[in-house]
Design a protein around this nucleic acid. Structure first.
Lengths: 343, 343
DNA sequence: ATTAGCACTCCTTTCCCAAGAGTGCTAACA
DNA sequence: TGTTAGCACTCTTGGGAAAGGAGTGCTAAT
């Protein structure tokens, strides 16, 4: 048995109604639904079929039906297909042109949370493919050097190293020139042993300092990648959905959002080359890589800032989230981001 | 009528028992309490007195008693007085000596949350009194300069400015020397019009750049002060306490912790000169400056890193929090911090 | 001054019942 | 053959009522 047009219509009606109310929807409700003029009895028969096909579920014998994960999946695929062409504009989204990408991302998470009434999370860009733009050593205390590393996208990392000997201003200047000449324009991956060896050779007496600098660069970038910057916002929005807001579930969910490392799973998968760049990913219920979110749906989208500088935006809500709006919003935001920074 | 010794003992016993169980405590429970050999009837009489004095409350006629805010206050004052001398050490608190204060603070919030099972928040240091240590201008793109500002405590601020004209390496070098000579060692407050005027004069043709730099310094520091860095952790710990974990209250509380700006009230008060530096402040119930926390207790402590570089650590839990432990822990942590960074 | 005992109060839990919502099935109809 | 009306049935939900429990206040005895 396949989904004929009427079944599709009924299924859509059921899901849409459920999205609004959050309550199981009965046959009578649908029969009053404007488009199709059918009695509740007929609807009941169709619903029975739809249930057999696995698109809807009865929470208990004498309740209405709610969409199953499969039902949501049908609905979402439909939406994504329809929306695919029209990237609606969204002027209200006031992205102030900020130089600091990270602040922007933080703001983004907040704006999204406010706009959608769901919890959001935004992962900071990962660095592996990123080109170094600028390195600067400066003496801050007699034996303490400040290292500033700027990478594509104008993202800045700072750290300190402590040197054995005190370096003169001139030595520092020379080191700076050397480091910038050797490393600028390279991605982290391209800084391989060959480059490093050459660099050390040229550094002469200060090879030790160079080593420390490289180490710090690596550590800064690695650390960045390890405990991936993740910004979350609107966690308490989940309290707006009764099906998620019982103590047990809410506690678990919010905990998960607090412990950012648990969220990695959501991004790793996204970052695989298989997923095409701007594609939007929807995880429904059990499909999600993060176990504590099995009663939620998660929609994620990748953004690309510069070459190899990419991250992910995610929205977490109840299974009955407004997929239409969420997918649309994400699409807009991502294309905004790409436009603003993609050059 | 005053609190005689026996009343004090009973009151303490009631509060301690309630701290553990979270349930109203009855006279029989106390009469079994080892130290005092009194029958439940006697206890009842005393409890009746204590209630009249306002130290304890009956949630309803036939329930045991729970401490009133006044009761908690009595208990807390007691604790603080007792603990005041012995600053217990706490080796397990593994503060890795990190140069980046902010990372440290973030970690601190987490460690505290894990240790205490309450929600924690740590405010980043405020800058107004802070001495500038180091300023560095560097060209990143042809018309774009990176400004790095390091202040006491090795806290780093970065920002970008865009210049009209392209500056030569030499010009930048000179500006750097000028800026550092003029500003290093000054606090933000000390950079007044006189200093600025002199600086501009010396800058000659580049007064415009200097102006922008000063502006950025101010903005960076101000912005820092405005949306005060606040790190929170362990928000979901509140679910461990039934009296706070009903949907309504939990939602409110966690929301408050998420919107950091709502927490400012907690720090402003602390930062007034009236409160002596390392003093520990306990807000019980309605005493708290943040309205949504009126069913909680909040314990805060100030830390001091360098001259004028101070912040606050707070712990938020149910009124029946383990004040003894919390006050002790905070005292330790603060003295640790002071020791590590106070030079 | 302390204690034992007892009646009383009030919360909480449980159970039951009625109401309501929705289904599945059967039979009738176009 | 597809659609519909009707009805019995199921299951949840909400509101009491009743039972149980915990704890008090008071009185009388020690």
């Amino acid at each position: 048995m396949e989904l004929d047009e009427r079944k599709e219509k009924i299924l859509k009606a059921i899901i849409q109604t459920y999205l609004e109310t959050g309550e199981p929807v009965g046959s009578r409700t649908i029969s009053k639904y404007s488009d199709l003029n059918l009695s509740s009895a007929t609807i009941r028969n169709e619903m029975s079929d739809l249930e057999e096909l696995g698109y809807i579920i009865q929470p208990h014998t004498s309740a209405g039906r709610i969409p199953s994960d499969k039902g949501y999946r049908f609905y979402v695929d439909q939406i994504i297909r329809e929306k695919d062409s029209q990237v609606s504009q969204m002027q209200e989204l006031m992205i102030q042109r900020v130089d600091r990408v990270e602040l922007l991302l933080k703001q983004m998470a907040q704006i999204l949370a406010n706009n959608t009434n769901y919890a959001t999370l935004v992962s900071g860009p990962s660095y592996h493919q990123t080109k170094l733009k600028f390195i600067q050593l400066s003496r801050v205390e007699s034996h303490k050097l400040l290292i500033v590393v700027v990478v594509e996208g104008n993202i800045i990392r700072n750290s300190f190293i402590t040197t054995d000997e005190e370096l003169s201003d001139e030595e520092i200047l020379n080191l700076n020139i050397l480091l910038n000449n050797s490393l600028n324009g390279l991605t982290i991956r391209e800084i391989n042993l060959g480059v490093i060896a050459k660099l050390k050779e040229q550094a002469g007496a200060h090879r030790q300092v160079v080593e420390m600098v490289l180490n710090e660069v690596a550590v800064a970038v690695e650390a960045q990648d390890e405990d991936l910057q993740i910004y979350t916002s609107g966690a308490t929005n989940i309290f707006k959905y009764p099906e998620l807001s019982d103590t047990q579930r809410a506690s678990e969910l919010i905990s998960t959002l607090e412990q950012k490392e648990l969220l990695k799973g959501l991004f790793d998968e996204q970052n695989e080359p298989s997923a095409s760049d701007s594609e939007i990913q929807v995880y429904i219920g059990d499909e999600t890589p993060v176990r504590t979110m099995k009663d939620c749906s998660v929609v994620t989208a990748n953004y690309v800032l510069g070459e190899g500088l990419r991250g992910t935006i995610g929205i977490i809500g109840p299974k009955r989230m407004d997929y239409e709006k969420v997918v649309g919003t994400l699409r807009t935001v991502v294309s905004q981001l790409n436009e603003t920074f993609g050059k």
